[in-house]
Design a protein around this nucleic acid. Structure first.
Lengths: 222, 222
DNA sequence: TTAAAATTTAAACAGTGTTTAATTCTTGTG
DNA sequence: CACAAGAATTAAACACTGTTTAAATTTTAA
């Protein structure tokens, strides 16, 4: 359960603890990036951080707690990226989100790959930040579809509550396939974009549909 | 590496070994169905089968080999189901495949859930039967899309090599979400069908598109 | 019947995550 | 400034994995 009050008095002790905690998490981060999340072994982590095993248990917690902290950090970042994409016009919103995500992953591809695999397997995504990030992240495509209907781009024949999750599924799957090494980050970008554009096309009005088709065409040729 | 020649002479010894091997695999199957694939522990399995640990190593192999055998069996079944769906007319082909899969999973839902999770996590799907089942299973939707173009249902504006994997992705994701417990088998059926129909709709000619829309509508209402 | 070959077994090995009890250090007080 | 109380750290062990080794048992074939 880690330590309760980390610095209520700012003593040298609490400052040292905070610093050590940071070291632990930083090294865990690096270890995962270097060798994958299955290589995160408490003894190795302790050695790398220049500490002993029980100290890690005291300052952060067991393996699951360590992963939970790291994944929670990542979820916060993802959320920020998603919020930025929200402001754009509907049509560009999805593309911006996917490109921003890809750029973000590129800053430390090995780590993000490992972290997503860890999150998926441990169920930590569903536990982080309340009701799970899926339930949260799917809201944006739903809203974007609603706006697209109002903007006259989509027919509205398919309810946004149906089309939105479908779109979200497209980049969720692309993200998984990238994390599992089936393709690289550029493959992720392409796969996610194609999926989203096809979903939109299924309910698009003719003019919008043509725009989507040409986007798909340029993605599949290049 | 298991045993090499299992019954070249049909001796009582080789028959006993074959019977014991069957017992091991049957109990492994049951154990996974009962408690999930993470509960597959060699000692437990040995106790359940009335044997000792090294016997399992001799007759089947380590944990990975046991899983590999079980998953390979499953892949063979999945392939048979897919082959049956191939014969139907294009439009019904996808629906038949998804319904047949759902029916098959229903015969032992707990086991198939666990087996899919095991297959996904261990990478065993990619190793089984040559180049991996994904590369194989994706061929059918590609061919189905080609036929749909020829039949005048799809415009062909999107290459079957693009649309097919997208369709396959829809039920792959639905299958994963079902295996991870996000919804039940009926949810799988619905989610997979909606995904496939929307993908088709993105390239469908007007008349076909309307048929797809009404199918989606009936799926989302009921 | 019996010796050779193969299978099965009990026991140990190696590597995990985690916890316990003793040691060391920091803190606030007399 | 010394020192007792409290907290953090440590070394060592525990419990549980998958896996392997060497001895005992069983089966086979001469």
């Amino acid at each position: 359960m880690a330590v309760e009050t980390l610095s209520s008095h700012e003593t040298t002790r609490s400052k040292n603890m905070a610093k050590r905690r940071e070291t632990i998490l930083r090294e865990a981060h690096a270890l995962i990036a270097d060798e994958g999340f299955e290589a995160l072994k408490i003894r190795d982590l302790a050695a790398r951080a220049g500490l002993t095993v029980p100290t890690i248990y005291n300052l952060v917690g067991g393996k699951n707690e360590i992963l939970a902290v790291i994944i929670e950090e990542m979820v916060v970042q993802l959320r920020a990226i998603q919020n930025e994409a929200k402001i754009d016009p509907v049509e560009k919103s999805f593309a911006k989100l996917i490109n921003d995500l890809a750029d973000h992953f590129a800053t430390n591809e090995a780590f993000f790959r490992a972290a997503f695999i860890a999150g998926d397997r441990s169920g930590l995504f569903e536990q982080s930040s309340g009701e799970g990030i899926f339930a949260h992240f799917v809201q944006q495509p739903i809203e974007a579809c609603s706006r697209a209907v109002e903007a006259g781009l989509l027919r509205g024949q398919i309810a946004p509550e149906v089309l939105g999750p479908q779109i979200y599924g497209c980049y969720r799957l692309a993200r998984q396939d990238w994390a599992n090494g089936y393709f690289d980050l550029d493959g992720f970008r392409k796969q996610a974009l194609i999926g989203v554009f096809l979903c939109l096309a299924s309910d698009a009005k003719p003019a919008f549909r043509e725009r989507l088709m040409s986007k798909v065409a340029s993605l599949t040729s290049g």
